[in-house]
């Protein structure tokens, strides 16, 4: 899997670049973030959780059976919302309460 950064939304804050455990994200000449080594992404989603403007999404590579959905997170009312947008426009929202533990 890898990520895609929406240049239109990116405000160039550099938070994603700072957190990436693979040093894979860079800022271009206009100060916007881009992933320089897309094949080297581990899929940890650290950058996605950092982005204040929800400009970063991840997707499953076609080689691992991906179907083209784009996924990002939003922080709302103390919850972490995962937003999964499928290519046909269907949107699935899953809210996770960070104060709630896994049950299994």
């Amino acid at each position: 899997m890898s990520i895609a950064i929406n240049k239109r939304k990116c405000i160039g804050c550099g938070k994603c670049r700072n957190v990436c455990p693979g040093t894979l994200i860079k800022l271009d000449v206009s100060g916007k973030a881009y992933i320089k080594y897309p094949k080297d992404c581990w899929g940890c989603t650290s950058c996605i959780k950092e982005c204040p403007v929800y400009a970063i999404s991840f997707f499953l590579g076609a080689d691992m059976g991906g179907n083209g959905s784009m996924v990002h997170t939003e922080k709302r009312d103390g919850l972490l919302r995962w937003v999964i947008e499928s290519p046909d426009g269907k949107v699935t929202n899953i809210d996770i309460d960070p104060k709630e533990s896994n049950k299994y």
Binding site: M1, G43, T45, F58, L60, M64, G65, G66, N67, S69, V71, W82, I84, S86, T92, I94, I96, N102, K103, Y104
Partner: peptide, 18 residues
């Protein structure tokens, strides 16, 4: 399980949903 995987390996949750 959907939530648990989002907290550690989100691609599996996406796989299920896709």
């Amino acid at each position: 399980l959907i939530n648990a995987y989002l907290n550690m390996a989100p691609s599996q949750t996406v796989k299920w949903i896709e």
